[in-house]
Each structure stands twice: as C-alpha cells, then as structure tokens.
C-alpha cells in the first residue's frame, strides 16, 4: 500500500500503524504458533501411544533400529543452516549483497542435504508406517517435519531468486527476514523431534 503515499486520493488511505511490530512479521509468528500446535497434535499422539497406552510397545519396536548417528549428523547440518540463514539476514541489513546470496545458497544447500539424507534413511530404515504404532509415530513425526523443511526450502528458494535479482535493500528485506524466521522454527522443531524420537 505504501505505493500510494504520494497520492492520498489514489486508492486507500494509509492505514495507521498502531503497533511497533510489523504486520507480516507478526503474521509469520502467529502462523508459527499454529504450526507449533500442529506438531503438538502429533506429539500428543506420540505421548498417548508411548506413555499413556497401558500395553505400550517397546521403543523402537524390535527387531527394528533407529539410525541415531546418521540422524545426528543430519541434525548438525540443519542446525548449522540456521546460522548461515542468520548470517544472510545480517549481511543484507549491513547492505552486503554477496553475504546475503552466499548465506541463502548455503542454507538452501544444507536444507536439501538434510531432506535427501532423510529420504535415504526412509529407504534404508527397513520398516514402514504400518509396522506397529512405533512405525506410525516415527513416520508421522519425521514426515510432518520433512514436509515443513520442504515448505521452508520453497520459501528460501523464492528469497534466493529475488536476492540474485537484487531485490533486497538494507531497508526492505522482509522477503529474507520472514522465510528466515520460519526456517529457524523448522530447525528448532527438528531438535525436539530428534530428541523425542531418536534419543528418548
């Protein structure tokens, strides 16, 4: 709407900014709150199957094993990508375009690496969603998270494209900031999933 600042009668009046927080940032935070609750629903299912259920199965369900180590490596990859994301944002705030591009590309690559590793893991893991409530919950939570990584990557690639087209400036960089917030959320979520599924 800012396009109309010059011409008051040329479209809507400029809305009053009644809060310090920016609309789209707040929007993303609320969206994340909702997303967190979706994970919450899946964790509740996990909780019921593994804790509440009077005759809960062993975890992991023999004879299956969880590739704790590979997943651990994968975790570090994802966590690192949070830092590169942060770097990208800081760079554009300081007006450093190349830092922005490099940061975004690195983040993107690490995200892809994570997703690929997880797919390989699925292919090699030797059990499927039908193998007991254990298999169900495993694929349910990791799958849900995988889907979120995918969404995050899509947002990031958009930001990257625009970064290379030189769209962002130290003043206007929501296009980087907002996907960034989401990406950090996805990473944090993974740490929780990893801890509950693989470690506990």
């Amino acid at each position: 709407m800012s396009a109309h600042a010059d011409a008051p009668h040329h479209g809507p009046p400029i809305a009053n900014q009644s809060s310090r927080i920016d609309a789209s940032v707040l929007g993303m935070f609320l969206f994340i709150a909702s997303e967190a609750m979706l994970f919450g629903a899946f964790f509740t299912a996990y909780f019921f199957v593994r804790v509440v259920n009077p005759d809960a199965q062993p975890w992991p369900l023999p004879p299956f094993h969880l590739p704790v180590f590979v997943a651990g490596v994968n975790t570090t990859i994802l966590v690192t990508s949070s830092f590169t994301m942060h770097w990208a944002l800081q760079s554009i705030k300081r007006g450093n375009r190349n830092g922005l591009k490099a940061g975004l590309v690195l983040t993107l690559l690490m995200g892809l690496a994570f997703l690929l590793t997880q797919m390989l893991e699925y292919a090699r893991i030797g059990f499927n969603p039908g193998d007991g409530a254990f298999g169900t919950i495993f694929f349910g939570l990791t799958g849900l998270h995988g889907a979120h990584v995918f969404i995050g990557l899509t947002l990031l690639s958009v930001a990257t494209v625009r970064a290379f087209r030189g769209h962002f400036t130290p003043e206007h960089h929501h296009g980087v900031e907002i996907p960034g917030i989401y990406w950090h959320f996805v990473d944090v979520m993974w740490i929780v999933v990893y801890a509950t599924i693989y470690l506990l």
Binding site: S34, E35, M37, L38, G40, A41, F42, T44, A45, F48, V49, V52, N53, D55, A56, Q57, L61, P129, G130, G132, A133, F134, G135, T136, F139, G140
Partner: peptide
C-alpha cells in the same frame, strides 16, 4: 484448530496408509 487437523489426519492415515494410530492390535491407543 491444528488439533482437529491432526485428529482427522490420523484417522485418515489409519485407513489410507494403514498406519496404527488407533489400531489396538498394533499398539495404537
């Protein structure tokens, strides 16, 4: 709202993907 989304996914997966969220015999609850 995400909770009803979850609940409906679970019952649907139990049918479509033969998961065991609620199949007692397979450790569901």
């Amino acid at each position: 709202t995400p909770f009803i989304a979850g609940s409906q996914f679970f019952v649907m997966f139990d049918r479509v993907m033969h998961t065991n969220f609620f199949h007692v015999a397979e450790g569901g609850y």
